[in-house]
Design a protein around this nucleic acid. Sequence first.
RNA 1: CGGGAUGUGGCUCAGUUUGGUAGAGCACUGGCAUGGGGUGCCAGGGGUCGCAGGUUCAAGUCCUGUCAUCCCGACCA
Length: 478
Amino acid sequence: MLSNKKFVEKITDMEEDFGQWYTDVVKQAELVDYGSVRGTMIIKPYGFALWENMRDIIDQKIKETGHQNVYFPLFIPESLLQKEKDHVEGFAPEVAWVTHGGDDELGERLSIRPTSEVLFCEYYANNIHSYRDLPMLYNQWANVVRWEKTTRPFLRSLEFLWQEGHTAHATHEEAAEETDRMLEVYADFCENYLAIPVIKGRKTEKEKFAGAKYTLTIESLMHDGRALQTATSHLFGTGFAEAFDITYLDENGEQQYVHQTSWGITTRLIGALIMVHGDNRGLVIPPRVAPTQAMIVPIAQHKEGVLDKAYALRDQLKDIVRVDIDDSDHMPGWKFNESEMKGYPVRIELGPRDIEKEQVVLVRRDTGEKEFVPMNELATRLPALLEEIQQNLFDQALAHREEKTTAVTTIDEFKQTLEEKGGFIQAMWCGDTACEEEIREVTGATSRCIPFEQKEIAPTCVCCGKEAKDMVYWARAY
RNA sequence: CGGGAUGUGGCUCAGUUUGGUAGAGCACUGGCAUGGGGUGCCAGGGGUCGCAGGUUCAAGUCCUGUCAUCCCGACCA
């Protein structure tokens, strides 16, 4: 870990006030500005570049798994939104409505999509006729609006960007496979690109998506010991198909309902990345998604030849790593701090002394370690270093999660652990929603998921003492 | 939606108690020096005090109303 010595006071220590730390980092790293409407955000160039990198990787994986991108409208007529009962009930409290076109009141209110299930359903109903049309594997990148009461950049904003996959299949088995497949895509992305270890599992009935048969999820642990749902993949079964009359003729000429899924990840992942890897000096971005992987900082750049050499170095490296140069008029110390706040994985220092010795100084963001590297070895050393950083970030996050995961057998132990240590609680559960609600009331924790990887901690439910069905991960969550 | 607070240059805030015509730090512009962990000095530009009304010779300051935002609790990717 990086020493806790601070050079700049612009970022509140995370131990002191984690919420304020988060806000400071988001602002100082220039990821976002606040929009003029409460709860909205302007994603600035650096923040958007990060999102674009994440998006491009996921987009490629979505296409590799056979999906096609589409774009559906922003508006959903009220009558359409209301076709599936559970779905409306789930979203109604946070829907934004358009009531006027110019000065004229609309005959029917239009909701601004909080999610697009019903639009896809309407389309599927009109376009699926035969088993030959299936599966239909669509994805869209879009913005959605949910009128949240309390908001926070990336974690919960009125408007956010996401990707939503919507698929229709002939059979339950195919749809279930799809749901599993996409959860795997997300888990792979989180672990191998964002360096965020995840727990894969299923949501309880209480926590599942409104209208779904079941919801698969990946959950991860933030630095303050609170959990964050990083992605979800839902199996709808035929619920929506029945509500929207989405049917096809099978090989035997019989009318069948389609089996549907949906799955998504959002700009919230940026919040996860910040809260998993960041430290008291600011952001730490994993190399594989970092817009700038290495920032060159010229020292005494006014001196003859220094800047020329720095530009030459950039040109030499630009096909190997994503490299940039800070040739601003600031002092070197200022640039060091700036590069740490921005979370560039590696800083390359280059001054008169280095030029004389034909070397550069590499400083890694995660540990603060410095190394002197001969100019002619840089092309091999730098990519290797980036990989080391990527791996180290994952290892650190995993170690942190393991340290903060506790198995408990009694509700008192549950409560005490959560208060003193936070993190994930593993506890047995009978499967009854009443117990889930009581646990929340008593401890403040919600069920995060029923993990695929089960272990029996005790034979009985931590809450009611009846026979336990599953081991469940619990936590206070964002 | 309940409780608390705040609106003054781009940002953080002082000034309001006791009305007299707006100030600091940061940021910004120009200059000189400096340059291996937020550099120093000099010179500049920029606000009518959330909005609307009222009291007064005079309102950032007092009164009424209104809007917005932030923090704490219940709901959510």
